[in-house]
């Protein structure tokens, strides 16, 4: 199970990059994609939508289940990964890269530091 050190995480298994010019990229973790199984469909938020931290922003569907994906930080959606609509399997094959879901312009740049770091998230994932 990969947990990149440079990312921060929510306990609900989303990752976020460190803000660059106030923008973070969000996806689901390798652990989460493994639990879901083969992803078959992704519902992405509308660009321009404002999200609260912890608000359901996207849905990732596998054959047998569907999971809400929450915004780990508050902000406005500035970009979504439209490529996932045709190739949702990228979430399985490259959860931290091609499998990214959306980008947020965060309301509070410092909030990122309050998310779980890799070690803390590893402990969460360990518990399942």
């Amino acid at each position: 199970m990969k947990i990149p050190q440079e990312l921060r995480f929510a306990a609900s298994h989303e990752w976020a990059t460190e803000p660059a010019d106030g923008i973070v990229t969000v996806g689901i973790t390798d652990f989460a994609q493994d639990q879901l199984g083969d992803v078959v469909f992704v519902e992405l938020p509308e660009v321009g939508r404002t999200l609260a931290a912890g608000e359901a922003a996207a849905v990732v569907e596998s054959v047998k289940t569907a999971s809400d994906i929450n915004a780990p930080l508050a902000g406005e959606v500035v970009e979504v990964n439209g490529a996932l609509l045709d190739a949702p399997e990228a979430i399985n094959t490259d959860a931290y890269g091609e499998g990214w879901l959306f980008r947020l312009r965060v309301t509070d740049g410092d909030a990122w530091g309050g998310l779980l770091d890799a070690d803390a998230y590893a402990a969460v994932a360990e518990e399942g």
């Binding site: 469909f41 596998s62 569907a66 809400d68």
Partner: peptide, 13 residues
Amino acid sequence: TLQAREQHIRRSK
């Protein structure tokens, strides 16, 4: 197919 939309999986959603 597309059962993930249905009540037995999505429940209240």
